[in-house]
Amino acid sequence: MNMNTESFVVTIEVVPPDGPDATSVLDALRPLAKLPFYGFSVATNPVAKPRMSAMALCALIRQRTGKPAILHLTTRDHNRLGLQGELWGARALGIDTVLAATGDFVALKDRHYTSTVRDADVYELVGMARKAGMHTGVVFDRHPETNGLERAVAHLKRKVEAGAQFAVTQPVYDEAGADEITTVTRDLGIPVVMGILPLRTPRHAEFLHTKVAGIAVPEALRKRLHEAADPIAEGVANAREIFALARSRFAGACIMPPFDHYEIMPEILQI
């Protein structure tokens, strides 16, 4: 994937199954292949819970849908040997794009049976990915819950200096958030892709706003969902609004269907 040659790149994020059977995920993704989007973006052990290998699912998605798949790779799960092996393995399978990330922190209650690795940092992973010939992206997290924008921009600049070629934002929910991101990333010299996570219910919105680092759901939108006769439809409507914003301000959009609800994609893409 080369965002410098694509006018507007749309990807759909996929969470691998929590077991060895990918049939239900692939069955849900196959009908999407006819929609107008570039490809899939496959998460790796999100929220630090075990899931099927993202690289294995990338390969299966390519086989079953004919669409490209972007591999998420984290320093949390591998040492340098493992990271290098994953990058070379991805290239061998025809995967040409990687999203390099630190990875979510392991919850305190889970640390009695697992630990993080991180003997390479995300900047080193970006460099390794570039040397392996991968088109390399990174995550941009504004940390709105801690007013951490200045630090986040400095972090992103270091990733660009390490070789990052594009960035994907954490979910954005309003024009103010979109404008803030375009302002602070304008001079970085890389394409920025807006993250879009459709809301399902008022409870979903409140959970994301209060419990999930990197996500802020505006009060006005939370109120809209509380007052809506059909909160799911309201969440999809907001996602369509944000998708339109992405088209006017960003190089692309990464849509993250919640809880495997891929059936909402045609409406978001306005097909």
Rank of each mutant, 00 (worst) to 15 (best):
N2E: 09
P17K: 04
P17Y: 08
D21Y: 05
D27I: 02
L29D: 04
K34I: 13
L35N: 02
Y38P: 02
S41G: 00
A43V: 12
T44D: 14
K49F: 06
P50H: 05
A56R: 02
L60W: 04
R62V: 14
G66Y: 01
T74Y: 05
D77K: 11
N79P: 11
R80C: 10
G85N: 10
E86M: 15
E86C: 12
G89A: 09
A92E: 06
L93R: 12
G103C: 02
R111W: 00
H112G: 03
Y113K: 10
T114F: 03
S115A: 14
T116G: 15
V117G: 06
A120N: 05
E124M: 13
L125D: 03
V126C: 08
G127F: 07
K131N: 14
M134G: 04
D141F: 13
H143Q: 13
E145T: 14
N147D: 14
N147Q: 12
N147E: 10
L156T: 09
L156M: 11
K157C: 09
K159Y: 04
A162R: 01
A167D: 04
P171G: 08
E175K: 15
I181V: 15
M194S: 06
I196M: 06
P198W: 04
L199H: 03
L199A: 06
R200T: 15
T201M: 01
H204I: 07
K211Q: 15
K211I: 03
V212Y: 03
V212Q: 01
G214P: 11
E219Q: 15
L225S: 00
I232V: 15
E234S: 14
G235I: 13
A237E: 11
N238M: 12
E241N: 08
A244Q: 12
L245A: 03
A246V: 02
S248E: 13
R249Y: 00
F250Q: 01
A251F: 09
A253S: 07
C254S: 09
C254H: 14
C254D: 05
F259L: 13
Y262A: 01
I264T: 04
P266Q: 02
P266M: 08
E267S: 12
I271Y: 03
